[in-house]
Design a protein around this nucleic acid. Structure first.
Lengths: 220, 220
DNA sequence: GAGTCAATTAATATCGATATTTTATATGAG
DNA sequence: CTCATATAAAATATCGATATTAATTGACTC
């Protein structure tokens, strides 16, 4: 009955949440598209209630819009939106990273080193694995700030950004630049407790990727 | 069948959303409390589906937490959370206000003056009316930035803050300070296009209220 | 008596069917 | 031919009942 590749069989709602989320992020469900319950229901082999609830939850993530009495649609994507995401990320991650470094501990340093190492290892293991390790690294940079809402916003913005990467190049070619060198530079600065340098490197990292993406997104 | 005081009879979900939201903001449903479907269902005279969906939507607003397979609870409230809200508001509203002023137009100025005027008028008409006019004024200050997500975050944070006002003083006594003078000062600076002064006044406004609230919240 | 495990209770999550509302289609008047 | 209006089709929203899962209670061992 449950032919989900992953072993975990949490609730049907959670399964639907993950599946729909993935489809939106990768562009399988294009931005702006109407999301009909019935269609999703049969795509995911589940009932209407879980689908509906999953969509409500995706609303929190700004990946789905809901209009009362007329259903759900995948959040629209456009250049202005992308630029807003970039701006907000720069401001919020700057704040979070500085505070993380300020409160640095050995434990955090350890987690950071590990997250970075796992990311370098994951380059071989397919994009999905790398994607996850990459996010973990970036979130670890921020999580020592111990500001739950700020973390949540950053995580949200990170995810929204993924979608634009897929839009620009269908996910391929992301590692074209010397991304691993940039990661290394951020890590080193953070470990040394140099907040200014770490933040500068992190923001460069985003702005470089951002410029690259903007170039591909002219048509939107 | 619909004995809702307000004439509007949108969806049952929307009605439940507004009702539960109100109860959480005012403390009628205390922070951290388990929210059982059955209980809410009978409180609101509606079915389980609308309640469930309303709770999912309130999750977006960070007013409700959802744990898979074990239901919903009102988001917890504590001093650290309050301080995080205050910090984030200061950073985000500063950004939004500056950009609003930067892009100032006659139309926006007009809307601002009107929103301010309506707020001063609403002081007589009960807290609910004032509450709404107050939020409209603050959001109008920001909305000329035309950054949809930023606005959303600010609106969210504004609402979360309301709850702490109720927690500190059960909603009363908010207008004790010279709040109207502070509003006036923000308005004037914004109209003159003086972003630095406007931002300084706005942040003072929040920090003053913040300090007042923190004093009352020691126990949390 | 403290802790573990089974049986019971309570709550959540899900299904399938129905009612409501919106959207699309077609019909007729000006 | 355009616009408005009524009709038909499709989709959303809601209900009531059931299946699953978590929390509680109580019996039993050590």
């Amino acid at each position: 009955m449950m032919n989900d590749p992953r072993g975990k069989d949490a609730s049907a709602t959670h399964g639907a949440y993950l599946a729909i989320r993935e489809k939106i992020l990768t562009g399988d469900l294009p931005a702006g598209q109407k999301l009909k319950i019935e269609r999703l229901r049969e795509m995911l082999n589940t009932g209407a209630s879980p689908v509906r609830e999953a969509l409500s939850l995706l609303t929190s993530d700004l990946l789905v819009e809901r209009i009362d009495q007329r259903g759900f649609r995948a959040a629209p994507a456009n250049k202005a939106n992308f630029e807003e995401i970039l701006t907000l990320r720069c401001v919020l991650e700057d704040m979070a990273l500085r505070r993380s470094i300020e409160r640095s501990t050995r434990t955090w340093e350890d987690r950071l080193v590990l997250a970075h190492h796992h990311m370098t290892r994951a380059t071989d293991q397919g994009t999905a694995a790398f994607e996850e390790a990459h996010k973990t690294f970036h979130m670890t940079l921020l999580d020592n700030a111990s500001l739950a809402m700020l973390e949540r916003y950053c995580s949200q913005l990170y995810d929204l950004n993924i979608r634009y990467r897929y839009l620009a190049a269908r996910g391929a070619g992301y590692r074209r630049r010397d991304v691993s060198g940039e990661h290394r530079a951020i890590l080193d600065a953070a470990l040394e407790g140099d907040a200014d340098r770490a933040s500068a490197r992190l923001l460069d990292h985003y702005r470089l990727t951002g410029d690259y993406l903007v170039a591909e997104l002219d048509d939107l």
